[in-house]
Simulated scan of single mutants.
Amino acid sequence: MNFRALVTERDTSGEVTSSVQELDDNRLPQGEVTVQVEWAGLNYKDGLCLTGAGGLVRTYPHVAGIDFAGTVSESADSRYGAGDKVILTGWRVGETHWGGYSEKARVDPEWLVPLPDGLGTRDAMVIGTAGLTAMLAIERLERAGLRPESGPVLVTGAAGGVGSIAIMLLAKLGYEAVALSGRTEHAAALTGLGAASILERDAFLAKPDKVLESARYAGAIDNVGGRVLGKLLKQIKYDGHVASIGNAGGIELETTVLPFILRGISLLGIDSVMQPYAARVRAWERIARIFDFGGYAKLVREVELDELPAAAGEILAGRVNGRTLVRVG
């Protein structure tokens, strides 16, 4: 049976373009489980894949979409049967394997997790890779010893998908969440999600640099990297922890050993792509219990498949706040 997909192609000159096409099942990649995709998300990586930036896609034609949710239609694996609701995030799906910008996806069963009780497939993509990553960061910080009574937790890139959800989850869990953003027009929305205070990024970076600065934060979730991460490391309290999850501000890190050897802080790397199954399920079930869909609704917008190329440019330019959902099914 034919299905619609947003197919990304590269011509002989190297130009990358995407268009909605009608395909048949023979075009699907290998995999033991076929999913009728209902909703997908738009993430920074998707913007890279749809524009050809970053070299993430090596083989064309390609179908992007690093996360999606839908219903199993066929399965050769005993873990899933027709009618099961499932979520997929990570595993380089949408990069090296065709992803969720298609009415059908064929994947390995190891890449899927069951939709938690109480969630719909649209709910799952409101959360998406962004929410999963935020929760993985919080859980890693908690395993390192962070508690609400430890002190404020700084979230950088707070207006984006991961950052805004991290603010909400931290607040729901009783933490004092401080939002750092270069887009102060979103301050009211972040306060509505539970941010205790808002810091403007340029003002944060403009303060004179010292080898160590006043210890302000018990922990941090950093989406930015670059200068922002280097700066915040100097402001973490003794025995504090920073979860590094993104590089929107650059992959370079300028720092010294002093925050680590004089204050005993830890820099924790968070990867959601290859996260083991049990950790994914645990994080999804915890998010499902505390996520405030009503409170987050104003930070959600929906697009159709044919609107994705334009939306990809917006997310790469830093003009998207919250979550962008893709109505696929």
Rank of each mutant, 00 (worst) to 15 (best):
182 G>Q: 03
180 L>A: 02
179 A>D: 02
218 A>F: 10
184 T>R: 05
243 A>H: 09
176 E>Y: 08
211 V>E: 12
195 A>D: 03
186 H>Y: 08
228 V>L: 00
169 L>C: 11
223 N>L: 12
237 K>S: 14
224 V>M: 04
197 S>H: 00
217 Y>H: 03
243 A>Y: 11
229 L>S: 07
187 A>N: 01
246 G>D: 05
239 D>V: 13
244 S>H: 13
214 S>G: 14
234 K>M: 10
207 K>Y: 09
241 H>G: 11
173 L>M: 15
184 T>L: 04
183 R>T: 11
198 I>F: 04
212 L>R: 10
197 S>Q: 07
245 I>K: 07
170 L>I: 12
199 L>H: 06
172 K>S: 07
203 A>Q: 11
233 L>P: 08
207 K>P: 08
189 A>K: 11
183 R>K: 15
183 R>F: 08
170 L>K: 11
172 K>D: 06
171 A>N: 12
191 T>F: 02
223 N>Y: 08
220 A>L: 06
226 G>A: 15
196 A>R: 03
205 L>K: 03
181 S>I: 08
182 G>P: 04
241 H>A: 15
202 D>T: 14
231 K>L: 05
193 L>T: 00
183 R>N: 14
226 G>W: 01
216 R>C: 12
204 F>Q: 00
229 L>M: 14
229 L>I: 08
188 A>V: 04
189 A>F: 09
180 L>S: 01
234 K>A: 14
197 S>N: 04
225 G>Q: 06
192 G>D: 03
178 V>L: 05
233 L>I: 09
202 D>C: 07
193 L>P: 00
206 A>V: 04
244 S>E: 09
206 A>Q: 10
187 A>K: 01
234 K>P: 09
195 A>C: 01
194 G>F: 00
194 G>Y: 01
217 Y>G: 03
189 A>R: 11
203 A>F: 04
239 D>M: 13
238 Y>Q: 12
181 S>D: 01
183 R>E: 12
173 L>N: 10
191 T>E: 15
194 G>I: 04
229 L>R: 10
225 G>R: 05
176 E>K: 13
246 G>P: 12
214 S>Q: 15
222 D>N: 01
183 R>Q: 13
218 A>M: 11
210 K>P: 07
190 L>M: 04
205 L>Y: 05
180 L>V: 04
180 L>Q: 04
246 G>N: 06
216 R>V: 14
207 K>R: 14
187 A>C: 00
191 T>C: 06
192 G>R: 04
181 S>C: 06
245 I>M: 12
239 D>C: 14
192 G>E: 03
182 G>N: 04
236 I>K: 05
195 A>Q: 03
184 T>V: 06
192 G>N: 00
237 K>W: 08
238 Y>F: 14
213 E>T: 10
238 Y>G: 10
201 R>L: 12
225 G>V: 07
214 S>L: 13
173 L>T: 00
217 Y>S: 02
229 L>G: 07
